[in-house]
């Protein structure tokens, strides 16, 4: 599927992203992007500073009464076990970032080389790799994650693995598309003529060219992964308790919606804000790095 689509986007190598100034101008020109960026910076700060800023131990029971309403002691109330919701929300940012970044990282590390190899070497290898990726894409992402999580059991590491595998094909496709579009470019051909090994060409000349679209894809995936984690939690496969994860908190809190809506709403708003932020920053990056990616990512 990939090779037909590249016509719409990658007719030639994207220009080297040297113009830092242009990048800055485009990237910071839109208010939403800036807003997203601020949310992300705050998210990182909260995650890093969690032990210092969270008012209570997020795992400790009975720091308040069961299901307390928001008060000056507990700004977002307490859950059924008397744990402080705000503290759990703060620690949940760590889980969210960890799940997002590690999954994206693993998927990228596996998917990008596969895509480049398939695109550069072509032929039978391309068929095998890219059809496998297409096959993975035929599984709805949640199904794949569900089956994998069922194989591996709950727990954060398994959720990460499940989400990574589910997102590998996306990276492979993009990497393959970029590679195929620049494979015949002069500088690649000349490198070949000069006797550079395939591995060196792929690593030195092709890999950097795949970065702009992939960075955009990764940023947007981060948001999608956080949403997917929430979906998995709803289906009963999520971060192992009592770890604080937003998706699991939303799901656990929905039982108490009528009397303690903050239990479910506060992590829900956190998820929405962060997903929003990743999407907006992704948009901004796309416009700044390579506007031609519009419509593809």
């Amino acid at each position: 599927m990939a090779e037909e689509r590249n016509i719409t986007g990658f007719e030639e190598a994207p220009p080297p992203v040297s113009e830092w100034r242009r990048f800055r101008r485009v990237f910071f020109s839109r208010g939403v992007v800036l807003f997203g960026l601020i949310i992300l910076v705050l998210l990182f700060l909260v995650a890093v500073l969690a032990p210092w800023i969270s008012p209570y131990d997020p795992y400790k029971m009975s720091v308040g009464k069961s299901l307390e309403h928001p008060s000056s002691q507990h700004l977002l109330g307490t859950d059924i076990l008397g744990r402080d919701t705000l503290s759990r929300l703060i620690y949940g940012s760590r889980t969210a970032l960890m799940v997002g970044f590690i999954s994206v990282g693993i998927a990228g590390v596996i998917g990008i080389p596969l895509g480049i190899i398939a695109g550069y070497l072509g032929g039978f290898l391309n068929t095998i790799i890219m059809r496998t990726m297409d096959a993975l894409l035929c599984f709805p992402m949640l199904l794949l994650a569900l089956v994998l999580a069922a194989v591996l059991g709950g727990g954060i590491q398994n959720v990460i693995v499940a989400l990574s595998v589910a997102t590998i094909p996306g990276y492979a496709r993009v990497a393959c598309g970029v590679t195929m579009s620049i494979r015949e470019n002069d500088y690649i051909l000349s490198a070949q003529a000069m006797g550079s090994s395939d591995a060196l060409i792929m690593f030195k000349h092709i890999l950097p060219n795949t970065f702009p679209p992939l960075i955009v894809l990764m940023t947007m995936q981060l948001g999608a992964l956080i949403l997917a984690e929430a979906g998995l939690s709803f289906l009963g496969i999520g971060i192992e308790p009592p770890g604080a994860a937003w998706g699991a908190m939303v799901n656990a809190g929905r039982n108490y919606l009528l009397n303690n809506p903050e239990l479910s709403f506060s992590p829900c708003i956190a998820i929405m804000l962060v997903v929003f932020a990743f999407n907006m920053v992704g948009d901004g990056l796309r416009d700044a790095l390579d506007p031609r990616l519009r419509g593809l990512l």
Binding site: G223, L227, A230, G231, F234, G247, V250, N251, R254, L257, S264, C268, I271, M272, L273, V275, F276, N279
Partner: peptide, 18 residues
């Protein structure tokens, strides 16, 4: 559209039901 791409759908379902 911002809400549409960010809300977990089971939350939306519950909100609609209520």
């Amino acid at each position: 559209t911002y809400i549409g791409i960010t809300i977990p759908i089971f939350m939306l379902a519950i909100l609609l039901i209520y």
